[in-house]
């Protein structure tokens, strides 16, 4: 009994260590991290196989939240139950948490420095460009026909011109999706609900920055 507990603790500790290492390398975030995880978990440690990686991508893509955190939760849970999931998520978040803190302290110290302010302005412009890029990529995999084009356009218009809370949009999207698919099928039309798998697979190994 005592032996299993020690082994369990060791496993949890291992999970924590691996994700602590992956955490700071999630620069570029989300899907870029999947390649790192694949190398660390599948190739190096053989904790999971390729098929489980597929499950992981599917689960972490459909749950709310960032892909990085969701992947950590998935792997942690598969390996060490709830405790493993908590360890993995904590480990992947912790380094970033402290880096954010450090940056925040530095920014307070140099707040009135004109050069730092200028640098932050430059970074702001860079962040905008990364958001545009993310929007463009998301557009390619989500706007598949006229119906989805109308949904995307109405979401932007509603956000710009009304004070609507995004919650209603996120609730309305799936309802509209189900309604449109049912309607189109009743008319005997074929609906492509997602981009082809092959394209999605290729996209995964491409550094993305929207999670």
């Amino acid at each position: 009994m005592n032996h299993t507990v020690t082994r369990q603790m060791k496993l949890i500790f291992n999970i924590f260590g691996v994700f602590l290492k992956i955490g700071p390398s999630t620069f570029g975030g989300g899907y870029a991290m999947i390649a790192t995880i694949e190398q660390e978990i599948v190739c190096k440690r053989r904790w999971m196989d390729e098929k489980e990686m597929g499950d992981m991508v599917s689960v972490s893509g459909s749950a709310p939240g960032g892909v990085a955190v969701n992947c950590a939760a998935f792997i942690g849970y598969r390996l060490g139950g709830v405790l493993g999931a908590v360890a993995a998520v904590t480990a992947i978040t912790l380094p970033t948490f402290f880096i954010v803190f450090l940056l925040s302290f530095l920014s307070v110290i140099f707040k009135d420095n004109a050069k730092v302010e200028a640098a932050l302005k430059g970074i702001h412009a860079a962040v905008i460009s990364l958001i545009i890029l993310a929007a463009f990529k998301m557009w390619k995999s989500s706007v598949l026909d006229t119906a989805t084009l109308i949904i995307a356009a109405s979401a932007v218009i509603l956000l710009l011109f009304t004070g609507i809370h995004s919650f209603y949009l996120i609730l309305g999207g799936p309802i509209a999706g189900i309604a449109i698919v049912l309607f189109k099928r009743s008319k005997g039309m074929f609906v492509k609900t997602e981009k082809e798998q092959t394209e999605e697979k290729r996209e995964l190994h491409f550094p993305e920055y929207y999670i």
């Binding site: 599917s58 689960v59 459909s62 905008i128 958001i131 545009i132 993310a134 929007a135 998301m138 557009w139 995999s141 989500s142 706007v143 598949l144 989805t148 084009l149 949904i151 995307a152 356009a153 109405s154 979401a155 932007v156 956000l159 710009l160 995004s166 949009l169 996120i170 309305g172 999207g173 799936p174 309802i175 509209a176 999706g177 189900i178 309604a179 449109i180 698919v181 049912l182 609906v191 609900t193 997602e194 929207y210």
Partner: peptide, 27 residues
């Protein structure tokens, strides 16, 4: 999740909304 038809339809509608949210964030 990925093989469930209802879930597929939901994401078919949800994804463009997420695109809209990102476009709005950029603006």
């Amino acid at each position: 999740l990925q093989n469930n038809d209802l879930v597929k339809s939901s994401f078919y509608g949800l994804r463009p909304v997420v695109t809209g949210l990102i476009i709005y964030a950029a603006i």
